[in-house]
Structures are given as C-alpha cells and as structure tokens.
C-alpha cells in the first residue's frame, strides 16, 4: 500500500470510529447514566440509516428493476434553499433521530414501568423486527438488495477521491456537537436526577421524582442520538441493506466500546469507540488466527466480561459521582436493584 492508500484507509477507519463514538455516546445515556439495558442498538442503527437513506435517495430508476417505491429525494426538494451548504443532510440526520426517538418512546412506554430487563428483551425484538421489515417489505427499501448511491454530503464541492476527507470533517463536527450537547444535558439538573435515579431509584422516587418519566426521556434521547449515528453511517458507506446491521458490528461492538472506554463517562465513551475500532481494524492485519473474524467475535464477548469483572469503570472510569455511596459501589453500572 502506498502512502495515499494508507491515508485513505486511515481516514475510513477514523470516520467509522467517529460514527461509532456517536452510538457509544447514545448508549452511554442509556446504560452509563440511566442503567437502561439496550441490546437492540442494531435496530436504532438500521432505523436511523434507513430513514436517512429513504428520505434522501432519488426516486427509483425503472430501468434497474428496483423494488422500492419511494425515494424522498430530499436534496432536490430542498435545493431551492441555497445557503451554500447541504441543508438536507442535517434535515435527514434530525429526521433519523426523530424516527428512532418515536420508536423508543413506544417501546419504552410499554417496558420501562416493568422489570429492568424487559427493556433488553424488547429492544432485541425491535432490532429483529426492524431487520425483518426492511428485508421483507421490498417496496419500502428494496429488500435484501438494499438502497445504494445514497447522496453525498457536499458531494459537488470536492472531487470523488477527496470526498472522504470532507466527510471525515463532517463526522467529527457532528460528533463534537453531540458530545457537547450530551455533556450539557448530563450536567443540567435533569442529568443530576438521572444519576440520582441510577444510584438509588427508591430514594429518588421517594423524593418525588417520576422515575418512569425520567427513564423514558433518557431512553428516547439516547435513541435519538443513535438515529443520528445511523444516518451518518448511511451517508458514509452510501449503501444500506439488512445485512449491514448484524448484531456483531451494530450492537455488540458498541457495547464493548462503551465498557472499555468507561461507562458513565462521555470522554470514555468516545475514547472506547476509537480504541476498540482501532483494535478491530488493526487486528485484521495480524498473522494467523488473531485476524480470524470469528476469534475477534470471541474476543469482543471476552472483553465485555473481562471489563465487568476486572475494571468495571473501563479505561477512564466513571466521572465524579453525585454521592459517596455510589463512589464505593463496585458495580459496573447501575446500582439500583
């Protein structure tokens, strides 16, 4: 590989790590700050990516025997507004977030009043159902063939070979905005209530906090961020199909990222995404079984268990906590029983 090849490759890796960091931040809101166990990240991933893809691709081309019926063609639709930047991109990101938020609202409303782990099972079900819908309903998004040639953000501004660099900047900007927003939210009184709930649900409820409502809001917010991540992915790879969202790369690895970086710590969430994705892509050049994808799958699971057992705080550990009681807790995350 020559130098430009290496640079281009590295850019791709960093773009993907940045997208994963957005997911990791969303998951941190769920798990790190609220103790919500979401194992269906892939569902929100797919939903966000598909929403943005469907909204922005142009109408199906009859010559290509495509099955889908609707391409939102948002770029053409919004072309009359010409502020010098592709506005449609941000509209699509928000739309993706909103769709995920709405789905989270429904599923959270049903399960968050019940036992903690019902949410996990429900999110798993959502992920599978989303996958099945996009697989079977060909009119919606072309079935297993998927949607491709998803529009580029600011595609006219740079040449094709330099597009990656531009998109890298876009991803990092979005990541920065999401990071700052999440930090603000967590520091706000609302965020402090979340922590209080996580540390001691009974006490929080006793002091008049509507625990259910706070959990629901947190679940929706995290899903919204995941939707944005999904949209970022769609416009990066520019191809989405049901197969793009298998649990390994769309759920498990994100869990590993958050756990490794440090759940309950936004810097940790971002760091974990870069570290784990770096290791993941780096190890494929290793000799022998180390680069075997199956072995790496094993290692992802092993890593999650090892972090919980040996270093529940991850690399960075949880940020300053609200109460002394929580500080002493050794649990990897939520302390409510």
């Amino acid at each position: 590989m020559d130098i430009s090849g290496i640079i281009s490759y590295t850019t791709g890796v960093v773009i993907m790590a940045g997208i994963y960091a957005v997911f990791s931040l969303g998951l941190n809101i769920h798990w790190g700050y609220t103790g919500l166990f979401n194992i269906g990240i892939a569902g929100f991933f797919a939903l966000g990516a598909y929403t943005s893809a469907i909204l922005t691709t142009s109408a199906p081309d009859p010559d290509l025997f495509e099955d889908f019926k609707f391409g939102g063609d948002l770029p053409a639709l919004l072309s009359f507004l010409d502020p010098g930047i592709d506005l449609w991109f941000f509209v699509a990101l928000l739309a993706a977030g909103v769709v995920c938020g709405v789905v989270a609202l429904g599923i959270g409303f049903i399960t968050l009043r019940l036992r903690d782990d019902y949410l996990a099972i429900a999110t798993l079900g959502i992920a599978e159902s989303v996958r099945l819908v996009f697989l079977n309903e060909k009119w919606l998004a072309n079935g297993s063939k998927g949607l491709y040639r998803i529009p580029k953000f600011m595609g006219d501004v740079v040449s094709a070979e330099n597009y990656e660099f531009l998109y890298l900047v876009a991803v990092l900007l979005v990541l920065a905005v999401v990071y700052l927003a999440v930090q603000q939210v967590i520091k706000s009184p609302w965020g402090r209530v979340l922590k209080a709930i996580r540390e001691d649900e009974t006490t929080a409820a006793a002091s008049g906090k509507n625990v259910f409502s706070f959990k629901l809001q947190s679940f929706v917010l995290g899903a919204f961020i995941m939707g944005i991540g999904g949209a970022l992915y769609a416009h990066s790879v520019r191809f989405v199909a049901p197969i793009s969202f298998d649990p390994l790369l769309a759920t498990f690895i994100i869990w590993a990222m958050l756990m490794v970086g440090g759940s309950g710590n936004n810097k940790g969430a971002v760091l974990g995404a870069f570290v784990v994705w770096g290791i993941w892509t780096g190890t494929q050049f290793l000799p022998g079984f180390l680069s075997d994808p199956n072995f790496r799958l094993f290692m992802i699971g092993f890593l999650i268990v090892a972090v919980i057992l040996l270093r529940p705080g991850g690399i960075l550990g949880e940020e300053r906590r609200v109460s002394r009681a929580a500080q002493e807790r050794e649990g990897a995350a939520p302390s409510e029983l």
Binding site: W31, F37, D116, D117, I304, G331, A333, P334, E336
Partner: peptide
Amino acid sequence: GVSTVVLAMT
C-alpha cells in the same frame, strides 16, 4: 452485590 442488569449485561 451488583444489580441484576449488570448480570444480564455480563
């Protein structure tokens, strides 16, 4: 003494 969600996570 971790919570049950952490066990599920594990």
